[in-house]
Nucleic acid binder design. Structure first.
Lengths: 66, 66
DNA sequence: CTTTAATGTAATGTTTACTTTACATTTTAA
DNA sequence: TTAAAATGTAAAGTAAACATTACATTAAAG
């Protein structure tokens, strides 16, 4: 599953560290999500979506099979 | 985090077993989600939402703090 | 009432999200 | 161009999602 975290974060011009703190995870977690190492949990996805004022589905992009 | 899985499933009049198969998990996972033992992963939340033709946020309900 | 279908519980194991620490690389700014 | 800021990588550990099996309870139907 792809996500638009890095794209949205850069639009907002904030650092990984600040996003991490805002949503209550470590910087490592943000890096891993941005680089596709693993998927966010539902709670984290919700927090990230809320942070950007968007819906989960508009940030986390599912392929047809998923 | 609360969810409306059981409510929606009963509206549709389908069994846990059939929902489980439809979204690719075991019946145990559906039971655990319905009974609040743990939260769905983002992928599973997406599949369940797609199954019911709804948005993730309309099925999985987050409190203010979450 | 008795059988069967549906739901629930419990225990153990695997996988994966997330943490922590430490260091390396890239980007930005003085 | 060099220092500092930002991003990335790696490894090892913890916690939680999900699987598997087996059995218990409840609900529905004959």
């Amino acid at each position: 599953m792809e996500n638009r975290i890095q794209e949205l974060r850069k639009e907002k011009r904030i650092r990984q560290e600040d996003l991490a703190e805002a949503v209550g995870v470590t910087r490592q977690t943000i890096i891993s999500l941005e680089n596709g190492r693993y998927n966010a949990s539902l709670l984290l996805a919700h927090r990230i979506a809320a942070y950007f004022g968007m819906k989960i589905e508009d940030i986390f992009l599912f392929d047809e099979e998923e």
